[in-house]
Simulated assay, not measured.
Amino acid sequence: MALLNELPLVSQKRGWPWNEEVEQDVYESKKHWPKISIITPSYNQGKFIEETIRSILLQNYPNLEYIVIDGGSTDDTVDIIRKYEKWITFWVSEKDKGQANAINKGIDKSTGDIFNWINSDDYLAPDALVTIANAFKKGYSVAGNVYNFYDSDPGFKDIIQNKGLSGHQFLSLKSTFHQPGVWCDLNNIKAAGKFPEQSSYYFDRIFFTAYFIQFSQVIYSNEILVHFRYHENSKTLVIRDSKADELIDYYNELLKNPLFEDFKKDLKLALKYQLLPEKHISDWEYENAHKKIGSRLSSYLGLMLKKPELIQSRHFFTKLKRSVLQNLT
C-alpha cells in the first residue's frame, strides 16, 4: 500500500519527499525483491531528519528494513522519529560512541540482502531503491551517483559519480568514493568486520579500504541515488578543512601489515601525492588564515621551497588558485 496518505501531513512543505511518493507500479516487474536494510545514524539533526525518513519510506519499497540509531538527541529528533515509528523496523535513542558505533549497532540488527546507511541530514532520490534493487547481484556492490547540495545556495550543482572502486585504485586514492551512493551485500559487510569506532572522521574510508580488497565486484549506475547536504555542521566540511593525520596514520600502519604487501606501491603513492600534501597545505592554511594577501602569497610560495615535492601534487595548485590568488582579484 502506498504510504503518502498514511504518513503524517507536513502541510508547509511541497515536492519530494513531502507530498510526492514513488508510484507502486514500478515494482510490478518482479514478484520478489531483495530485502534492503537502511540505517540512519542520528544525533541532534531534528532540522533535517524528517526529510531523510520520508525519502526512505516514500520509496514504497516492498521489502524494506529501516533502522534508526539515535545517539540520545536533545533536540526534537526523537519526537520526529516517534511520528514515524509505525513504519520504522527498529529505533533507539541512547548515548553511543559516535557515528561508527551507531552504524555497527544498526548492522547487528540488520537482516537484509542489500545494505547502506543514510545520514540524518541527507535523503534518497526518487526511485533510488528500485534502481539499486534492479542492479543488485549477490556478492556485488552497487555504486551510483550522489548529488551534493547547499540549502543556502540553490544554484550549486555537484554530481559525484562513484568510480574505480577496486582495491588498488581505492588504496591509491585514485578512485572516486562517495559513501551514500555505494550499496553493498550485507553478508559482505558483516564478513568485513566492524566499522572502526576509534576513528573520528575517516571510519568509512578505513573500513572500505579492506572491504574493496576482499569484495571487488562493483556494478556501476549512472543514476542519482542520494542527495547529500552540505551545511556548517556537516562532517564532510569539517574533514575538508582538517588535517589528514588520521588517514596518514592508518596508511603508515598498513605499510607494516604483511597482508598489504602487494599494495605497498599504492599506499606510498597515496601518502606522497595526496595525504601528506593535504596535511602540509592544511597546516599552512591554519597558520596563515588571518594574514594579509601579500603575506599569504609569499608564505605559500615559501612552502613550495621548503617542500618541493608539493609541486607534484594537484592540491598545491588547487589551493593556490582557490585560497590565495582568488583573493587578489
Rank of each mutant, 00 (worst) to 15 (best):
V92N: 10
L171R: 15
G112Y: 06
R82D: 06
Q179R: 15
F177R: 14
A128R: 13
W91I: 02
P62Y: 13
S73K: 13
N116L: 01
V92S: 10
N162E: 07
K163F: 09
F170C: 05
G98W: 14
D113I: 00
I81N: 06
K97W: 11
G181I: 08
T131K: 10
L173N: 12
F170N: 07
Q161V: 10
G106K: 08
D122S: 06
S93C: 04
D151S: 05
L129A: 03
K95E: 07
Y123G: 00
K174C: 06
L64S: 08
V142P: 03
V182I: 14
Y123H: 14
D70L: 08
G167N: 13
F177S: 05
G106W: 07
T131R: 11
G72W: 15
Y147Q: 07
S120Q: 08
K138G: 00
L171D: 04
Y140H: 13
K97Y: 11
K97H: 12
V182L: 09
D75I: 12
D70Q: 11
S73V: 10
K157D: 01
Q99V: 04
A100H: 09
G167V: 08
N116M: 02
I160F: 14
P180Q: 10
N116E: 02
D127V: 05
K95W: 06
L64T: 10
S73I: 08
N162Q: 13
T176S: 03
G98E: 07
F115C: 00
P126H: 10
L124W: 13
N104C: 01
I81K: 09
I81T: 09
D79T: 13
D76F: 07
D70M: 09
D121V: 04
K109N: 01
I132L: 05
T176F: 10
K109W: 06
G155Y: 15
L129C: 03
D76S: 08
W183M: 01
G164I: 12
K174W: 14
T77Y: 09
V142F: 07
R82K: 15
K83D: 03
V78M: 06
C184P: 01
K137V: 04
N101P: 00
E85D: 13
G72L: 09
S152A: 06
V68Q: 08
L173C: 09
F149S: 01
